[in-house]
Design a protein around this nucleic acid. Structure first.
Length: 441
RNA sequence: GUGGCUGUGGUGCAGUGGUUAGCACGUCUGACUGUGGAUCAGAAGGUCGAGGGUUCAAAUCCCUCCAGCCACCCCA
């Protein structure tokens, strides 16, 4: 009989034990940083009503939403596309039970019917942190500060948070005279500045049918981009007659002040950074790893003061970011950032078994070690040669093997061998757990 | 949705028209009935991604489809 073939849905993966252990380590570090900053955990269903998700993140996003229909189902359901839109729904639904401002984090899988490629999957985890109910740029600065802290805690050193502001971008569009309908094309082209250069942007804008004089004015502004923070003064002068741009610039300046207060300096003001999602209204930020530079951004977020307003009468100012955990994990491997205590197996001690008659004694020893909080596996097949049992322990990455043969049992003792260096000790049963701890060092 | 590359035992590969498709690693058994990454001997494991075509003959050439990877679009 032909076995059933084993393929997985496109863009979805299985994880081996050692991979899960690494992922859990990353989740753990990030969770710890989130909590240190005073954020609370929440959870929401993987499925939402389709209407909850549609039309929130932009047309492109709608096309990538996974529809999830039960054969007899009457209501249209979908797998969540991100954790931000569910948050907006959640806040509107539970506002009675939440104290404002509400700071929450959420680590969970999301689904996108995207075409997979490097660092990109159809099912992947996002780690979101958001502050609901604070209009001040202090909230935005705190989010950025948190992102920097989390990345540093994971061991990243070479990265930069790029900061821009949607109001400023809008203002630039207005100043250049680009019609509202074409602002999407405009932003998209600007965002590619790094990839295609000023000339490339110019060509793309022309191809989108944007007027030459508008392009010229755009180019004048984008030239300041290199100056980062220092560009703001020139841009402010240039955009003197555009109130929305002035507002955006003021927001950036305030944010920068707060970042200084928080001791954050790993950021840059980047006039050409645009975030694709449709709901952003103010500051936007995105982190680029600067050393290996092929995996794209590793965090992305911004302020979306109007999103919650789609789910209740009045909106609430909200800002937050998502950490792209999958890319972070890929990079952790690439840069070898895992500490030694992240091991390939959960097992610290493998208790070997010599013969059928001593299996009970081996189990009893395992039980004692477990009671002392040591992660212990008892080998189950007494017929298997001891050498093979040691080999098994070594292959799977266990650190210590316990030997408990007739001689030791007779003497009330036990022998432990540390596989890393072959070092062996023999101790009384009463000292077993202590000896293991010493060997684990 | 568009384009490029790839598809041979569990994994990584060789084999570019000619007898029963090879190799390495892994797995299993034994030499070794109280101790690991070694050595030796042996074994299991493949409808060569699928279907069609060309040919006396196809893993090899042609067509279609499927899948994977990479890039674009977009995004974490």
């Amino acid at each position: 009989m032909a076995p059933i073939n084993t393929r997985l849905p496109k863009g979805m993966r299985d994880f081996l034990p050692h991979e899960v252990l690494k992922r859990e380590y990353v989740f753990g570090v990030i969770t710890d940083v989130f909590q240190t900053f005073g954020f609370e955990p929440i959870a929401t269903p993987t499925l939402e009503m389709l209407d909850t998700l549609l039309g929130k993140s932009g047309e492109e996003a709608d096309k990538l939403i996974f529809h999830a229909q039960h054969p007899g189902g009457k209501e249209a359901l979908a797998l969540r596309y991100d954790l931000t839109v569910p948050l907006a729904r959640y806040v509107a639904m539970h506002e009675n039970d939440l104290s404002m401002p509400f700071r929450r984090y959420h680590i969970a899988p999301v689904w996108r019917g995207d075409r997979p490629q490097k660092g990109r999957y159809r099912e992947f985890y996002q780690c979101d942190v958001d502050i609901v109910g604070v209009a001040s740029m202090a909230a935005d600065a705190e989010i950025v500060s948190l992102l920097v802290a989390a990345l540093r805690r994971l061991g990243f050193a070479d990265f930069t948070v790029h900061i821009n502001n949607r109001k400023l971008l809008n203002g630039i569009g207005i100043y250049a005279g680009v019609p509202e309908a074409q602002s999407g094309d405009l932003y998209r082209s600007i965002d590619k500045l790094d990839k295609i250069g000023l000339d490339g942007v110019k060509k793309e804008l022309a191809a989108s049918g944007i007027a030459d004089d508008a392009i010229g004015r755009m180019m004048d502004l984008l030239q300041y981009r290199e100056d980062g923070l220092a560009a703001l003064g020139s841009v402010r002068d240039q955009l003197r007659g555009v109130p929305i741009a002035q507002e955006g610039i003021t927001e950036i300046e305030q944010m920068v002040d707060y970042l200084d207060a928080l001791g954050v300096d790993q950021f840059t003001v980047d006039l050409a950074m645009v975030r694709g999602l449709g709901y952003y209204t103010g500051p936007v930020y995105e982190t680029m790893i600067t050393r290996p530079d092929n995996l794209g951004s590793v965090t992305g977020g911004g302020r979306y003061d109007r999103l919650i307003g789609l789910f209740r009468k009045e909106s609430m100012p909200t800002t937050g970011s998502s950490l792209g955990i999958e890319r972070i994990i890929d990079l952790m491997d690439l840069l070898d950032l895992y500490p030694a205590e992240v091991t390939r197996t959960v097992v610290q001690v493998l208790v070997s078994v010599f013969e059928a008659g001593t299996q009970g004694a081996s189990l009893a020893l395992a039980n004692e070690l477990r009671a002392a909080g040591i992660r212990t596996e008892a080998y189950m097949n007494p017929k298997r040669a001891i050498g093979k049992q040691v080999q098994y322990a070594d292959r799977k990455g266990a650190q210590i093997v316990a030997f408990l043969g007739p001689d030791e049992i007779q003497a009330g003792r036990v022998k432990f061998k540390r596989l890393r260096d072959g070092h062996e000790v023999e101790v009384s049963r009463a000292e077993a757990a202590q000896a293991v701890r010493a060997l684990l060092g």
